[in-house]
Amino acid sequence: MNAHSHINDLKSDRIFKFFNYSFLTLALSIVLYPLIYIISASISSPTAVNSGEMWLFPKDITFEGYKLIFENDAIWRGYLNTIMYTALGTSINLAVTLPAAYVLGRKDFVGRNFFTGMFVLTMFFQGGLIPTYLVVKNLGLIDTIWAMVLPNAAAIWNIVIARVFFQSTIPIELEESAKIDGCSNFKLFFKIVLPLSAPIIAVMALFYGVGHWNSYFNALIYISDRALYPLQMVLREILVLQDMASQSTNVTGSMAEAIHSKQQLAAIIKYGVMIVSTLPIIIVYPFLQKYFVQGVMIGSLKG
């Protein structure tokens, strides 16, 4: 009797295992297929891609798309702008987030509740798109680099994550003994706390950096000077607007021709630009995945 049920259990276990691995393989394939398709499509001839002949592995391999991308001034300029916004923006983010997070974690900081409350309230209630736009406009930031970095100088969620890190990893005795030795708060933060906080600095830089790299909305509403366009705005024109133009069939003459030639260009380069624009993230992702996950977990402790 006992042996019988034991065998039954093993059998149900095997069935379970089979279904579980099938399910995981299904999930894996669904996510992986579009990624492989994009890579293959970026080096296949547009005819093979558009006709559906190319569906998994590259067909009629050509690097024409990548060649056109490297010759495209708008993409180059967008790339350089994005690198600049990401570097400057992330530096500002860290300079605002880390000191604030440290101070909010200090139990002896008078006004801790006031500042925490003031920051956290913005999670639930905000001025909204139009009032924020008017503030940025009145500060004269429209069409400047600063419109790309200042309106997102800090994210409350990241301040919370960094605060939890400081509170849980910097022993309070360290701070106390430093103070007894006559160490000022500046010295304490810059010379003792920061050098001990490499992991959280990495996590924060990654979170903010990816955010800057991928963002288009700030540029859409604050930047009209094409010379300041970040990469994502250039991509938007290639990947999204060309398609919309193809739907407005009423254009005729030279206008239609111009749109048509732009569409052809877009058809050749669109898969390539998806790869080129995501490349920096693809390269760092496998090495830094661990840190991203850690960041989310620290956040979840508090959430």
Partner: peptide, 14 residues
């Protein structure tokens, strides 16, 4: 810096 940021970009819009 954080105080100024939240004041200017969150409370002024409010």
């Amino acid at each position: 810096p954080a105080f100024l940021y939240f004041f200017i970009f969150h409370y002024l819009p409010m």
